[in-house]
């Protein structure tokens, strides 16, 4: 009987299934299945030549007890995520919010300018030249001519300088997806709300932001946050392009750059999978933290 009822509602809603099916089928095949099999693989040793061998929790135990590199890259990943995540999220929002005040022409032009690093992707070359370790690198040349330093600094092979540089470059190139999503949703906040707010005693743009704009775009802020978390915990291309892999004493390498190396150079796919499961757990925690913060907005 119950089964019949379910069948009936399914018949009534067949159009919903038609709308959902193309995405859902492909999503299941090309994302859910691979993620599950990768998670399962994290309990095996797999060198991509012979069959996977069951290892239980071996990969995870090895990670935390034997692998010093892992502990370093874990620390770097968290540090870089803390330094770039919240700042990147705020920057993507604040810039979109500021741009929203402008007329259509300036808005399109400026948002294009911010979007350029994400659009072109190949802009990293310029940073490599700027931070080049000899006296020809732009940063060194400027500091030398101002007399601030007397000898050129090896920026990219300097363990203390590399992290700030990576943070700067990451923030600079992060005005992509969440930035433009913020713009499209800011323009949707009902203007009558602002008028009503002014009557209700909102006195400046900060109050307006906190009481009207932010609560009005909560759903988009969650999107923006998840995308920012995903990229803040996965910085790796920038580091490798700037300073190579591995960086000096693994000073700036992250879990992602490490697991790429473990997978494609050392052929330990089981271990690489275990690394990406741990990375997932980190991002999951960060997302949870953000959601609990988001619930406080506008109070």
């Amino acid at each position: 009987m119950k089964f019949k009822n379910t069948l009936n509602t399914m018949k009534q809603n067949w159009e919903l299934y038609v709308l959902l099916a193309p995405f859902l089928l492909l999503f299941f095949l090309l994302t859910v299945l691979p993620v599950l099999s990768s998670a399962v693989l994290s309990f095996f040793n797999f060198d991509m030549v012979s069959l996977p061998k069951f290892a239980g929790l071996g990969n995870y135990i090895r990670m935390f007890t034997e692998d010093d590199i892992f502990l370093t890259v874990l620390k770097n990943t968290i540090v870089l995520a803390i330094l770039t995540g919240p700042a990147g999220f705020l920057l993507a929002f604040v810039l979109a919010w500021m741009i929203n005040e402008l007329g259509p022409f300036l808005r399109t032009l400026l948002s294009f300018m911010f979007y350029v690093p994400a659009l072109t992707g190949g802009g990293l070359l310029i940073w490599t030249i700027a931070f080049s370790g000899d006296s020809y690198g732009y940063v060194n040349a400027v500091l030398l001519s101002l007399g601030i330093i007397t000898a050129p600094i090896q920026w990219l092979s300097n363990a203390t300088a590399i992290i700030p540089i990576v943070v700067a470059v990451q923030l600079w190139s992060s005005m992509g997806v969440s930035f433009l999503a913020n713009i499209s949703s800011l323009q949707n906040v009902n203007p009558e709300l602002y008028e009503a707010g002014a009557v209700d005693g909102i006195r400046n743009r900060w109050q307006e932001l906190w009481y009207i704009t932010l609560p009005g775009m909560k759903s988009m802020l969650l999107f923006s946050a998840v995308m920012t978390i995903a990229s803040a915990f996965s910085i790796s291309g920038i580091i490798t392009q700037l300073a190579g892999y591995p960086t000096v004493n693994y000073a700036a390498d992250t879990i992602v750059s490490y697991l790429n190396d473990v997978g494609s150079v050392k052929y330990e796919m089981g271990y690489a999978s275990a690394l990406s499961v741990i990375l997932f757990a980190l991002m999951f925690g960060a997302r949870k933290l953000f959601v609990s913060l988001l619930n406080k907005v506008g109070e």
């Binding site: 993620v35 915990f233 997978g263 990406s276 997932f280």
Partner: peptide, 21 residues
């Protein structure tokens, strides 16, 4: 929820299963 969380899984280790599919 699954859609959202799938964004947090690193794509690199998905390469082999995806290739098989």
């Amino acid at each position: 929820m699954v859609v959202q969380l799938s964004l947090l899984f690193n794509a690199y280790t998905l390469m082999i299963p995806r290739y098989l599919i």
